[in-house]
Amino acid sequence: METPSQRRATRSGAQASSTPLSPTRITRLQEKEDLQELNDRLAVYIDRVRSLETENAGLRLRITESEEVVSREVSGIKAAYEAELGDARKTLDSVAKERARLQLELSKVREEFKELKARNTKKEGDLIAAQARLKDLEALLNSKEAALSTALSEKRTLEGELHDLRGQVAKLEAALGEAKKQLQDEMLRRVDAENRLQTMKEELDFQKNIYSEELRETKRRHETRLVEIDNGKQREFESRLADALQELRAQHEDQVEQYKKELEKTYSAKLDNARQSAERNSNLVGAAHEELQQSRIRIDSLSAQLSQLQKQLAAKEAKLRDLEDSLARERDTSRRLLAEKEREMAEMRARMQQQLDEYQELLDIKLALDMEIHAYRKLLEGEEERLRLSPSPTSQRSRGRASSHSSQTQGGGSVTKKRKLESTESRSSFSQHARTSGRVAVEEVDEEGKFVRLRNKSNEDQSMGNWQIKRQNGDDPLLTYRFPPKFTLKAGQVVTIWAAGAGATHSPPTDL
């Protein structure tokens, strides 16, 4: 069977082979063929449309019947899901209200924590001031004790010197008594010597008188005998007598002179000795008097100093007792304040721990409710997609609110971060928990396990030699990294520990 286009092609070929045509004729024939082709295509399209309309009418009838069946089946399910969705919305509203209440309680707890922290800071300042005052008082007490020990040692030294001076005074008084006794003995010996000298002088005078009498008696006897002796021998006898008398007189005078000289010499020697002894004793007595006077003056001065030191010692002891009493009071006050502060800190920690436990429990309940609501929403969306139902505006708002919801909680030295990733086909969620104590904190952990970043959050360098970082993902083997023995993380510095297959460059001390 030939198509209209094939017939047109045969006809035009025959005409062209029979007679030659002009260009205008050819153009018109071409346009006519195009119109015929378009008409044929339109006829085919109309036939196809008619057949499709016939099929569409049958399909519409089948769809109508199916919609009636589906509407009867879905009406009950939709009512049940609407009821469950209403319950879920009520639960979500109650959870939102509970969350708002918990946020209010958390803000209240934070305000109480700030207030307690301020009070604690003030108490710590008072405690530091009390400890500083206690240290000052202890230093003052130590200085006073040192001064007291010095004063006591000086007192003992002065008492020793006073005892020595008293012994010296006793010795000097004994020496003075001995000197006085020697002086009295010398004076007695001097008086005795003077008496003996006077006696010797009297004896000498008496001997002179006796010698004169004997001489006169001898002259008288000789004169008497001379009268009786011969005149011839008188001159010879007289001359001999005169010579004998002269010789006797000379001898007697020599003896008297020698005895006189010896007596005067002895007397002068004894007198000089007595005078020297008297002068020496008088000098000793003067020196003893002077030394005794000086000793008395020094004793008086030392007694005055001793009394002054005793007064100072009594004042120091009184002040020391006052300082000890004040120190005891300060210690009791400090202990009482410290006990009160520790009790308040313990109560505050217990209260904060209780509130944190309650908040953690409520947060766990909220997370469980969020997971249940998310599961209900997934089931509802799956059924709506299976039944090709359009979601209600309320469910769209709930989905938008659930997809944009995120929370971040800080308290008790722990930080909890939650992130949620969404897509049109599926939804997944993960959470990161970080707890830090000390100078070094974990700043970031790569989700794909490529690196771990640490930061020194203090103002001092931290030695991290032979420290270890351990990481384990589920049931995978435990991964451990040990820092070099001499590694030190500077204040405020960040160090990144890269995985072996991350392709990073080893560049200490920032990249390991």
Rank of each mutant, 00 (worst) to 15 (best):
E214V: 13
Y211C: 13
R221A: 11
V256M: 02
L204D: 04
E178M: 12
D185A: 02
K265F: 11
A269Y: 03
E264K: 01
K233A: 15
L197D: 04
S239G: 07
D185L: 11
E194W: 11
Y211W: 09
A250M: 14
D254A: 13
T218S: 11
H222V: 13
E202S: 07
R235L: 13
A244D: 11
D272R: 07
N195A: 05
K270I: 08
E262A: 01
L197S: 06
V191C: 08
M200Q: 06
Q184Y: 06
Q258K: 12
R225H: 15
L188C: 03
F206Y: 01
S212W: 13
N273H: 09
S212E: 14
L197V: 07
D230Y: 10
Q255W: 13
E264Y: 04
E236S: 08
E213A: 08
E257I: 12
L226S: 12
Q184G: 09
N209R: 03
A179V: 15
D243V: 15
Q198L: 15
L197Y: 12
L263Q: 04
L204H: 11
G232H: 09
S239F: 10
H252A: 12
T218Y: 14
M200D: 02
K260G: 04
R216C: 05
A244R: 05
D205G: 08
M187C: 10
L183S: 07
K180F: 06
K180V: 12
K181Q: 11
L188K: 03
D243S: 15
K201W: 04
E253A: 14
D254W: 13
Q184D: 09
K219H: 10
K270A: 04
E228V: 05
Q234P: 00
L248V: 03
L248S: 07
L188F: 03
T224D: 13
Q246D: 10
E202V: 03
I210D: 00
A193Y: 05
S212C: 10
V191L: 11
K270S: 11
R190G: 13
L271V: 12
E178V: 00
E247T: 11
E186D: 08
Q207D: 03
L188G: 01
K233Q: 10
Y211N: 15
D272E: 07
R240N: 06
K265N: 13
E203G: 04
M200T: 03
M187F: 07
E178C: 14
E253D: 00
L248R: 12
A269N: 13
H222R: 07
E228Y: 09
E202N: 04
R216H: 09
T224R: 06
A250H: 04
K260S: 07
E262K: 02
K260C: 00
H252M: 09
T224V: 01
R189L: 07
R196M: 01
K260M: 07
E247D: 07
E236R: 01
Q251R: 12
E213R: 04
E186G: 11
S212P: 07
I229M: 12
A269K: 06
L226Q: 10
A193F: 14
L215Y: 01
K260H: 07
Q207M: 00
Q184A: 13
Q184T: 13
E257R: 12
E178K: 14
T218R: 10
L271E: 04
K260L: 00
K265V: 05
D185G: 10
E213Y: 00
L226R: 08
V256C: 05
R235V: 01
E223K: 06
L226Y: 08
Q251Y: 01
L183E: 04
Q207I: 14
E203P: 01
N195F: 05
Y267R: 00
K270H: 10
L263A: 05
L204K: 14
M187E: 09
A179E: 14
S239I: 14
A179G: 01
N231H: 12
K261A: 10
A242R: 06
Y259C: 04
A244L: 03
D185I: 11
S268G: 12
E264D: 03
S239V: 13
A269L: 08
A179F: 14
R240P: 01
Q251K: 08
K233V: 11
A193D: 06
E262D: 09
K219W: 03
E178P: 14
A179H: 13
I229K: 09
Q234G: 07
Q182G: 09
L245I: 00
H222D: 13
D205K: 06
Q234H: 10
E264A: 06
L204G: 02
A250W: 11
D185M: 14
E214H: 01
L204W: 10
D192I: 04
Q198Y: 08
Y259A: 07
K208R: 05
L245S: 06
A179D: 11
A242E: 05
K180L: 00
E257G: 07
Q255V: 07
G232S: 06
